[in-house]
Amino acid sequence: MNVFRLTGDLSHLAAIIILLLKIWKSRSCAGISGKSQILFAIVFTTRYLDLLTSFISLYNTSMKLIYVGCAYATVYLIYVKFRATYDGNHDSFRVEFLIVPVGGLAVLINHSFAPLEILWTFSIYLESVAILPQLFMISKTGEAETITTHYLFCLGLYRALYLFNWVWRFYFEGFFDMIAIVAGLVQTVLYCDFFYLYVTKVLKGKKLSLPA
């Protein structure tokens, strides 16, 4: 555990809580992609199956349980409790275009051809692109609520901090996981455009809106 890893995890946790609170307090999931949230629920479910097979630490186990629990709670709020506010017409990204290639890639490129390991790999690849339906939705509507941009910023920051964590681990522990690193790089790059808008607009007190 190093400072980048810990702040990365906390940033990830902050993103998840911000989104849950936003939906709960406003009693609305307008502007939120339910598809991205379903993908994140799949990501956590397939990655944390090792909860059943191995114990790493109390920190590790409790964070995994919190992430999984919050992911399903978010999906429940969007598709059940506040379904009437869900903007399905703008959430039109075709997720099969992500799931199918990612599944194929996980079977082809993995650390070991074992069921749990393939599912872990699948979750890593899927996480790197799971935000695309959300970014697609924002590009379609041309705007995002400020609180939604805080959510996205924390989520992108988490992956950027993990990149520093991997540099740290490579130098001090000789550890590197090529699958996680490449997928993490892809994931971080996807946020770059958004980071730019966040810094130039949202942090200056303006709402995030895209030119028509």
Binding site: D50, S54, I56, S112, N165, D177
Partner: peptide, 10 residues
Amino acid sequence: HALEIHHDEL
């Protein structure tokens, strides 16, 4: 036996 892989990160 296949090598045991540990994923200690979240």
